[in-house]
Design a protein around this nucleic acid. Structure first.
Lengths: 243, 243
DNA sequence: TGTATAAGGTTGTATATACAGTATAGTCGA
DNA sequence: TCGACTATACTGTATATACAACCTTATACA
């Protein structure tokens, strides 16, 4: 289990854990490569790899001749936050409800293995849920979950908690990928959302990573007439815009 | 110059150059570590670092026991960052072109004044541009610009520079607001984008603030079949997700 | 013919070693 | 007191080597 984890990954996890828990505050000095060599009984190259990757991933910042430090949290985020649609709807003072369409285990295939970046993955959890606002379907959730990351996912009864809430409680989210497309609904989607074939939909596809592994991949379909995606956020002071 | 560049970076550049230029198509096998060792006269660890980093950056995909391959790069636009579509298209190795539909001054009205949070605003700059990838329209840009923030905006000839590039060069961006919707195109949009009435579109509405004032408001319309919006980013280490 | 085995290439990880460049703290000397 | 020099610690890069796991292909065998 944890034995299968390479050494450099263990070092990374150890450091991330300290950052996440708040034990190591922003700007605090992180153990140097040589200190990690001693405490973990590893070679310097392995310590170097752990620190270098965490730096590339934005968690640390390194200064030659000085040391390695916990980097300040980027101001970005917030654009597409992981929001629990139930609370979102409740926040608007509306009534939230949901219909569980499917909940079970599905065999993997090459496409799913690619999606989850794990060719050894044999099976996946799969659920389909329709979320409703005041009884009107507003979101169709078609979600795959990695059992090795969230093994007890299916034990939940999704009548009162949303999958998003379950996943956020179960595992930290390190990275998010979003793709937004417009599409006309399939007949199945028309049926589940109660819309016509001419009602365009937003398809928000999202993958989330946890500790380097793809935890879940979900496609959220919104009828255009009932939902729009919105975000507003300040940009970092240093202007990290590409071009 | 090139002397200052580390060996692994040279290898990375060499591979990226082949990918960007199109010499190595997606799915094509790239040289193995041992082949790079021979051709570059480097050690295997250096070749490994180059390939490993390019994989982490999303350009390559590796399969143990088989080889390393060029990863697919779908046509999609960065959602959260302000990217210059011309460079985005060029980066994919495609040809960028544009058609200027309208460029002029428009009188303000209550709706626009509200949008720009400035009731004293009398006039606005207004441009409409169709952006094309390999001659095919992929984005319709309908943009209003605040003259008090960018007074010389209209002096640009938008044949070779995009409005995004002009605005980014002229003024810092402090804050962004995005709204994404799906919609069927209007007849005007159908005509400009060369699509049918049944082709759903993504409508990305964006306002950007500069020094507390709304600098520009733009609606970007993408035909669903030709473009998707994409974003991928790391979350803050301390997990700032809202429920 | 079908199956088991072996061989060789590929990636993944880990170590030991080496040298260069950078920043800091302390020491020595004018 | 101030400046130059030195020792030290730290990161950055590069090499040679080793072993494991994985995949494909060829070969030997039943």
């Amino acid at each position: 289990m944890s034995d299968a984890q390479p050494l450099y990954a263990k070092v990374k996890d150890h450091i991330l854990e300290n950052i996440r828990s708040g034990a190591w505050a922003t700007g605090r000095r992180v153990p140097s490569e040589n200190e990690l060599v001693e405490s973990f009984r590893i070679s310097r190259m392995t310590a170097n790899r752990a620190l270098r990757e965490l730096t590339a991933e934005g968690f640390l910042s390194r200064v030659p001749g000085v040391g390695t430090f916990v980097r300040e949290a980027p101001a970005r985020s917030s654009l597409m936050e992981l929001r629990n649609i139930a609370e979102e709807i409740a926040q608007r003072g509306h009534r939230y409800s949901s219909r569980l369409i499917r909940k079970g285990v599905i065999d993997s295939n090459p496409a799913l293995a690619e999606e989850f970046e794990d060719r050894g993955l044999k099976q996946l959890f799969h659920i389909i849920i329709v979320h409703e606002e005041n009884g009107v379907p507003v979101q169709l959730e078609d979600r795959y979950v990695n059992p090795t990351v969230v093994p007890d996912f299916l034990e939940q009864d999704f009548a009162d908690t949303t999958p998003t809430a379950v996943l956020l409680a179960a595992t930290p989210v390190d990275e998010l990928e979003h793709t937004v497309e417009a599409a006309l609904p399939s007949t199945e989607q028309q049926r589940l959302l109660g819309i016509s074939a001419l009602e365009p939909c937003l398809a928000l596809y999202r993958r989330s990573w946890s500790r380097g592994r793809v935890a879940t991949a979900v496609t959220l379909t919104y009828p255009a007439s009932r939902y729009a995606l919105y975000s507003r956020h300040r940009t970092s002071a240093r202007g990290t815009f590409s071009q």
